[in-house]
């Protein structure tokens, strides 16, 4: 493939919807089609790395081969893709600010006023590009932690918005939301999703694909409705139903054709099915 494509995964409505598993599953499907893939996590917290976070609150602290203490999502990436990650795959707001402040103290900014835009956002973009320093990946999936609308994640959202203009035709946005089921009325509600996409649009990002987490199956009407209100064609509205183990998610996403939708959007020819047999 000619040039690296970037896929950004954001989340709305609630956290812990499984952006990490979604990213890892998507990576797995693209990898099974013979592409080289890596996944990066941008975490909006101010800890420089997750090594000091309470595991009861945050989950396992995962350690990479180069000795980086990282977010548990990197564990999902490695365990799904069977490929090693490094410090570069895990970036936190704390590290971004630390880098920028160190540069400021060194005088790298030559007397300029140091600001969130452009200095913090440029540092974020530099870290996204750094992962592909050797240019050997077909796809880089970048997951943005937290939920759209959080104060902490705004600089990340802004940075990935700019990426689309820096690399026209090579970026795609996936937004993961929740469609809750109200037992009392027996209804699936799409309003939280609509609001979450609206929030994303306010930050200047139009999602290309929506993935909806749900307990119950979504019918075509719901997909059409969500598509209409969120500016997304209904084929690109994907259902992600609760499953008993995380290892079923890649299979489910294959059934929903997440991988072919992405290849189509990038105008990449796709022949045949991904090789998922060992899975």
């Amino acid at each position: 493939m000619s040039k690296t494509k970037y896929i950004f995964v954001t989340g709305g409505v609630a956290s812990s919807l499984g952006k990490g598993i979604l990213s890892a599953s998507l990576g797995k499907l693209l990898q099974a089609r013979g592409y080289s893939v890596t996944i990066q996590k941008l975490d909006p917290y101010l800890n420089v790395d997750p090594g000091t976070l309470n595991p009861y609150e945050h989950g396992e602290c995962y350690v990479t081969i180069d000795g980086a203490e990282t977010d548990l999502d990197l564990g999902h990436y490695e365990r799904f893709l069977n490929e090693e990650t490094t410090q570069r795959n895990s970036v936190t707001t704390g590290r971004i600010y630390q880098n920028v402040i160190e540069k400021e103290r060194r005088g790298d900014f030559l007397g300029k006023t140091v600001q969130i835009i452009p200095h913090i956002t440029d540092e974020i973009k530099r870290n996204i590009r750094l992962l592909n320093a050797k240019g050997d990946y077909d796809f880089i999936i970048t997951e943005i932690g937290g939920t759209v609308g959080d104060i902490e994640s705004l600089p990340f959202i802004e940075a990935v918005r700019q990426m689309k203009w820096d690399m026209a035709g090579r970026c795609l946005y996936i937004h993961l939301t929740l469609v809750p089921f109200l037992a009392a009325s027996g209804e699936l509600k799409t309003k939280p999703t609509q609001h979450s996409v609206k929030q994303l649009l306010e930050s200047g990002i139009q999602p290309d694909i929506l993935v909806l987490r749900t307990e119950k199956p979504l019918n075509a009407d719901i997909k059409r409705k969500v598509g209409l209100f969120c500016n997304v064609d209904s084929d690109s509205v994907i259902e992600s139903r609760d499953v008993s183990t995380i290892y079923e998610v890649p299979i489910k996403m294959l059934e929903e054709q997440l991988d072919t939708i992405i290849l189509k959007k990038f105008k990449i020819k796709h022949g045949g099915e991904p090789e998922l047999k060992p899975w």
């Binding site: 420089v48 081969i65 180069d66 000795g67 980086a68 203490e69």
Partner: peptide, 10 residues
């Protein structure tokens, strides 16, 4: 310091 100071990595 407790941050990133353990024996870490491969």
């Amino acid at each position: 310091d407790t941050g990133s100071t353990m024996r870490l990595g491969g």
